Amino acid sequence: MSQCDGEAGGWKADLALALRLADRADGITLARFRAADLRVDRKPDRTPVTDADTATEDALRAVLAAERPGHAVVGEERGGSVDAGRGWVIDPIDGTKNYSRGVPVWASLIALVSDGDPVVGVVSAPALGRRWWASAGGGAWASDASGGEPRRLAVSGVHELADACLSTTELSSWAERGELDRYLDLVARCWVVRAFGDFWQHMLVAEGAIDVAIDAEANAWDLAAVQLVVTEAGGRFTDLTGADGFTGGSGMSSNGPLHAPSLAVLRG
């Protein structure tokens, strides 16, 4: 993967570390992807976890313990908390259901948070040959396995829901919230609707390929890195109450102009 030469100076060393962590994650996840002996278990919430999930998080934690011993770490598989100061938020494999079934849409998500705000974010999807990253004030960037210079990202300029492309993750999440009718109302107002899901839909918003992406239910490690990439690409990221941030239990990214109209429909 190409690296970034356009990061903000204040976060340059931390972004370089995050990109190296992504390289480490890619090496582990790709080696186990579609492996005949991949071990898949279920966590208490019935979501799957593979031996690659735990091995990746453990490896990243080991690097951080050596290189940033004063930083807290929170990860999907090993827990932890980042309450104040600087800390890392890690999802070793976002899209484990896809990973466990041999579908190549999954990624490792790595974010550095300072006083509650993401300041470095990397989303690495090696089976897709794609990587996205951002630093506070340094813009959002993407590269692919074919090489070439990193590409700076910018969200779309669509201003009307009737012209918008919308994506979500799972309809069952909306049903569980008792808000499926409201989501379907939003669907009816948009031009085209797809279900790219998880990290990918938010990266497509950052690229300007789609306009609105929604996770009705999500955890902090699902959202911290993608929030920064979207906002540094010129978009907006909130939870479904409209509050900025990645800790509200849901996530919505947009190109900006479509954010308030979409939230208004979802609120009924």
Rank of each mutant, 00 (worst) to 15 (best):
S262K: 00
G85I: 04
R189C: 07
N219E: 15
V229N: 14
P126Q: 11
E77K: 03
T96M: 03
L21W: 04
R24L: 13
D26N: 06
C4V: 14
L228T: 05
T231M: 00
T241A: 00
E57T: 04
S124V: 08
L186C: 04
G256V: 02
G121V: 01
A145N: 13
E76S: 00
G268V: 11
R182G: 00
D185W: 02
V226D: 08
H202L: 13
R61D: 09
D14M: 05
V119W: 12
E179K: 02
D144Q: 05
G75T: 07
V265C: 04
H202F: 15
A175T: 05
A175L: 12
F33R: 07
V122E: 01
W191K: 01
G95A: 05
A72Y: 10
R189H: 06
G251E: 05
R86W: 09
A206T: 09
R267Y: 06
A218D: 00
G208N: 11
D14E: 15
L258T: 04
S143P: 05
H202R: 14
D23W: 07
A59L: 12
L38I: 14
D41G: 01
F246D: 15
A127L: 07
H159D: 11
R151M: 03
G256Q: 08
T241Y: 04
G80W: 12
G245L: 11
D239A: 06
G9P: 11
L171I: 15
A140L: 08
W174H: 05
E170C: 07
V123W: 09
I28S: 11
V229M: 14
R46V: 06
R194C: 10
P69Q: 07
G234W: 00
A136G: 07
L258A: 05
G70S: 01
W141E: 15
D211R: 05
G79Q: 04
D181V: 08
M1Q: 12
A59P: 13
A206K: 05
G249L: 10
S100H: 02
I28C: 09
L240W: 03
R78T: 12
D185V: 09
E7H: 14
I93F: 10
L153G: 01
A162G: 11
A18D: 03
A84K: 02
D181M: 06
N98K: 00
V230G: 06
F33T: 02
V122A: 01
W200T: 05
D83G: 03
V103R: 14
G116W: 02
